[in-house]
């Protein structure tokens, strides 16, 4: 409020409803903590005291039915893949997926002789943002989340004929 205080006379502010909705949605995306392997430790460290995830509006939720964003952090194996799909289906629209780390992007260091590793989580669910790194630094993860916020802000949920 400090920037806007004592600046205007009585007036009406006009804006598009689309932009207001998208702005409100983007700054309050609650994430579904789906940590599988090493990248989960970096996700926990990003949510802890030094790099804080709550300052950009993200709160951890443990149930998929209450979350907007799913951060797939770690290697997805073939045994786990059916559960990933089930959890993705349980999320309510509008939902977004972030693939964190090189194992979730494309199989990672296990892509050559891994007989039990799924080479990239985008073989089973659609992904919005890819974050490279093994594991990505907390600053990388925050940059990826800010890009996702930008993507949400450019959406037009109410307009038809896009």
């Amino acid at each position: 409020m400090g920037f806007l205080e004592n600046r205007f006379e009585d007036n009406i502010i006009t804006a598009k409803v689309d932009q207001l909705l998208s702005w409100a949605r983007s700054t309050s995306a609650w994430y579904f903590q789906f940590g599988l392997a090493c990248c989960a430790i970096e996700m926990m460290a990003t949510a802890a005291s030094r790099h804080d995830l709550e300052r950009i509006g993200m709160m951890p939720r443990s149930s998929p039915r209450q979350a907007d964003v799913m951060i797939v952090a770690g290697t997805v194996t073939l045994k786990m893949a059916s559960r990933v799909k089930l959890l993705y289906d349980q999320m309510a629209d509008p939902k977004y997926v972030i693939s964190m780390g090189s194992c979730a992007n494309s199989g990672g260091p296990y892509s050559r002789q891994g007989y039990h590793v799924l080479k990239g989580v985008d073989q089973i669910i659609p992904v919005d943002v890819y974050i490279p790194g093994c594991p990505p630094r907390p600053e990388s993860l925050i940059e990826g989340l800010l890009k996702l916020q930008e993507k949400i802000r450019h959406e037009r949920p109410l307009t038809k004929n896009k």
């Binding site: 073939l78 893949a81 059916s82 494309s106 199989g107 892509s111 050559r112 002789q113 007989y115 799924l118 080479k119 073989q123 089973i124």
Partner: peptide, 20 residues
């Protein structure tokens, strides 16, 4: 003498993308 299977429950197992 084990050979990696090509497909498991509908998912491709080996690396298939070109240019990697």
């Amino acid at each position: 003498d084990y050979k990696t299977p090509n497909i498991y429950n509908g998912m491709k197992v080996p690396k298939v993308r070109k240019g990697w």
